[in-house]
Every structure is written in structure tokens, then in C-alpha cells.
Design a binder for these strands. Structure first.
Length: 418
RNA sequence: GUGGCUAUGGUGUAAGGGCAGCACGAGAGACUGUGGCUCUCUGAGUACGGGUUCGAAUCCCGUUAGCCACCCCA
């Protein structure tokens, strides 16, 4: 019986996988010089880690988590996002080595039980970046600047940065009160979903796309107006920093994030060419999260970028052609050829061959299809003469080379190119 | 989770109650040891399960999956 993949879980194969690689390589080349270390974090965590951090009333926790019982009756969950696990790791890590700062990035699968759509899978891949231990708005500005650099090096155009400040826990509760006071008398103008949201999570009303709700929200008090002096200062210094670093942005007071732990800076990168699933990366500051999970109070900021959405935006790269195809005719030729192939590969020259003993024509065809630059032909005649034929497929020329020196000759000829 | 649309070789498509065809790709050959162009041949398909009918790719129902919107979000 054929067993097929489960819904929303995909095999990421070439050329998409090549693009994931490219994104990761590029990100690494930007982040490493900025002092970030690459970490590998667990995919499975205690359920409580997510329910406590992301927010009990969020969609993610309420209905999208892959939760399972371990053999010892402990409830475990496949991580729906990366930050909670990173914070957990930070707490354990910083206890050990006394250093309150940590700059990390990681990459891996996340899991949410949503209805699949283009750019939305149940297992999806995120690149996460987290910075622990600094509260200065310069850190926010630098992170946004690194991201801008990443988009630009990946050749992405038309990426918008939307920015908001949600305030610290104090201004958030103040604001929440003001917002509820404003919304309650207007309840009947809101859709059913939003009426429920007022009590549970009034900020979410801002996300609603219903006509009635939008008009109500339009005149609603904004987070920006409720910021305390410190938060206002943080915001304005961040905006100055962005100016200095020439990071372009657009302020969006209605931007609230789907996770409850954000404080102060919240941001989202979107692209117009992705349809409804238009967010390619998002993040923000979460200054209370570390202490909330039992660590020493530590300010932090982070971002998550979705690889499938990024790769949808990337132009496909043309594949690098093969350097050498070895056409060995017969078993004896195969015996001669295999260690040469290994040695060439060991110095970084890409080599393929076909061990099925196909006809020369068939092997030449394959070499052509693989866009090989050269073909090395070894058959009975060549074995007799102890030489091989090296054909340059692009130049359409060929020459005989003495077999005993073939390794050296090939390395000379093919090694340094490109 | 809700609603809509869709499902034919590996890929892209035709047949709209009556013989499942075409193109590309793949494999072999024409060229007996040399790729690309050309030609020939070969393999490969109606997502799955029911129903209507003399007869179903085609009509109906269910399932599954994909896409789109909602929702949500990366």
C-alpha cells in the first residue's frame, strides 16, 4: 500500500531546498560578523512553555498546537514558534556562564495545525534571531538594519516594514483599559468575533477586516497615545536610529501581533506578491518574557522569518553545471575510474559517472544534460594505450591524456576554474 | 475550523455520456565508441471509494489532496 505524506507536511526538494540553503548561507554571512552564534534547539518542549508565553487566548494555543502525551504522562508540544524555546534555553544557558547577553540565530521546523494554503503549511520553517540582555533602542535598530541587509542581499524587492510600539506591561494595561472603555459602548457595531475579543484580547479587534469593526477601530485610542515616558523615549530614539541607519519603515499603529508576549517595539515585514499570506518575517521586543519564565529580568528582542514565503519571492538561481562526467565503458574501466573520481571530489571538483554500464552515447547524453563541462572517456582502447580521452563539451574539442598522470592533469585543468 | 473552486502519464494539457490523445521530459535506437539538432520506437495517466447508465475521464454522492477567500500568521 502506498503511504503518502500527511496534510500540510511537505517534502522540501530542489529547487526550493536550494533556496532555503541560500537564505541560510546569506543570513549566516550577515549575522556571524555581528556576533551571533548559531544554535540548535529542541523541537519538542513542555506544553506549558507555549501556553504560558504565547498567551492562553491566542489562536495558536487554543487550537493550533500539536500536543501529545509522553510515556510518563507529561504533556509535550511540537514548537509552534521559536522564541519561547529560545528564552527557555537562554535561562538555562545564562545560569551556567553568568553572561546576561546572548545573540543567537537558529533555523528549523515549526508546527501549527492550520488549514494549509500556499505559503502556509502545518510544518513550516523559520529562521529565528534573538538578542538577549540589551534594552537600548539601538539594538532594535540594528536588528532591523540586519534584516534590511538580508532582504537586499537576497535580491528581494518591495518589502515593507511596518512598525509599532505596544508599550511596556504598565502602559499596556493602561491602554487595555482605555480601549475597553472605548469599545464597550460601541459593542453592537462590532462583528461577533470582535465582541468576544473585547473581553479576552481587545487588541485583536485591530486585526479585524470587517467594515463595521474597522470604522469603530479607526477612532479608537491608539497604543502610541498611551505610552509612558520611557516607552515614548524608546520609540523616538529607535526612529532616530533607523534614520541614521537608513532603514525605511512605515508606522502602523494598528499593528498588533498574534503572540501576547511582545512589549514596546513590534514589527512585521510584508510583501504584496504573496496574496493573503503576506507576512514574511515578524518580531518584536519581549522584555518581560525571561522573568515571566523564571529567569532574571532580561530585556530581549527577536524576529522570525518564514522560509517558504521567502523562497516564493526569490528568483530561481541557475544551477551550477557539473565540472566533469566520467564515461567508463565496462567493468575494467570502472575499476580504474572510481578512485580517480574520489580523489577529484576530495579536492572539490564535482564529478559524476554512471555505473550501470550504459552505452557511450547514453552516457554522453547524460553528461550533456547535467551540463558537464568535460567528459573523461575510458574504454577498452584507452585501457590498452593507458590513456584517457578528455573531451571539452563546450569547446567541442578533445585530447588524450596519459592515464598515470590523469589526476594531476585534471586537477590542473579543472581545479582552479571559477 | 468555515466557505468556494479544482483533480487526466513525471510536467503542461485535449477528449464534455461512446476507441483516453498531444507536447515536453524520460529510456532505447537511427550513427556498430562521442552529447546538443532531426527522425523512429518504448515505457508511463483519468486521485481514492461508491452510485446512475447498455456504456462514465465526463453526471451524482462521499473521501483525500491542492488552490483561493475567511480565520490566523512566518
Amino acid at each position: 500500500m502506498k503511504i503518502s505524506r500527511i496534510r500540510g507536511f511537505r517534502d522540501v526538494v530542489s529547487p526550493e531546498s536550494d533556496q532555503y540553503e541560500k537564505i541560510l548561507r546569506t543570513a549566516e554571512s550577515i549575522l556571524k560578523p555581528a556576533g551571533f552564534e548559531r544554535v540548535f534547539l529542541p523541537i519538542l518542549e513542555p506544553t506549558e512553555l507555549f501556553s504560558r508565553t504565547i498567551g492562553e487566548t491566542t489562536d495558536i494555543v487554543e487550537k493550533e498546537m500539536y500536543t501529545l502525551m509522553d510515556r510518563n504522562e507529561e504533556s509535550l508540544t511540537l514548537r509552534p514558534e521559536g522564541t519561547a524555546g529560545a528564552v527557555r534555553a537562554y535561562i538555562e544557558h545564562s545560569e551556567k556562564n553568568q553572561d546576561p547577553t546572548w545573540k543567537i540565530f537558529y533555523y528549523g521546523p515549526m508546527f501549527r495545525h492550520e488549514r494549509p494554503q500556499k505559503g502556509r503549511q502545518r510544518q513550516f520553517y523559520q529562521l529565528g534571531v534573538e538578542i538577549f540582555g540589551w534594552s537600548s533602542p539601538w539594538v532594535d535598530a540594528e536588528l532591523l538594519s540586519l534584516l534590511q541587509e538580508l532582504w537586499s542581499r537576497l535580491g528581494l524587492k518591495d518589502i515593507q516594514l511596518r512598525l509599532n510600539s505596544l508599550g511596556c506591561s504598565k502602559c499596556r494595561t493602561d491602554y487595555r483599559k482605555r480601549l475597553m472603555n472605548y469599545l464597550l459602548p460601541l459593542q453592537n457595531r462590532l462583528c461577533a468575533d470582535c465582541q468576544r475579543r473585547i473581553e479576552r484580547n481587545p487588541l485583536r479587534v485591530f486585526d479585524c477586516k470587517q467594515e463595521g469593526c474597522r470604522s469603530v477601530v479607526h477612532a479608537a485610542p491608539k497604543t502610541l497615545d498611551s505610552l509612558c515616558e520611557d516607552c515614548k523615549g524608546h520609540r523616538s530614539r529607535l526612529l532616530e536610529g533607523l534614520k541614521t541607519l537608513q532603514v525605511s519603515y512605515e508606522e502602523d499603529p494598528s499593528l498588533v501581533r498574534g503572540l501576547d508576549y511582545y512589549t514596546r517595539t513590534a514589527f512585521e515585514y510584508t510583501s504584496d506578491s504573496l496574496g493573503a499570506q503576506n507576512a514574511i518575517a515578524a518580531g518584536g521586543r519581549y522584555d518581560d518574557l525571561v522573568s515571566q519564565l523564571g529567569g532574571r529580568p532580561t530585556p530581549a528582542i527577536g524576529v522570525a522569518a518564514g522560509l517558504e514565503r521567502l523562497s516564493l519571492l526569490l528568483q530561481p538561481d541557475k544551477k551550477e553545471g557539473l565540472k566533469l562526467f566520467v564515461a567508463a565503458l565496462g567493468e575494467r574501466a570502472a575499476q580504474e575510474v572510481v578512485s580517480l573520481i574520489r580523489n577529484l571530489r576530495n579536492v572539490g571538483i564535482s564529478v559524476e559517472w554512471d555505473s550501470e554500464g550504459k552505452s557511450l552515447k547514453s552516457q554522453m547524453r547524460r553528461a550533456d544534460r547535467l551540463q558537464a563541462h568535460y567528459v573523461l572517456i575510458l574504454g577498452d582502447q584507452e585501457l590498452q594505450k593507458r590513456e584517457g580521452i578528455l573531451r571539452d563539451l563546450q569547446a567541442q574539442t578533445q585530447e588524450s591524456i596519459p592515464w598515470e598522470q590523469s589526476l594531476k592533469i585534471l586537477i590542473d585543468k579543472l581545479g582552479s576554474k571559477r
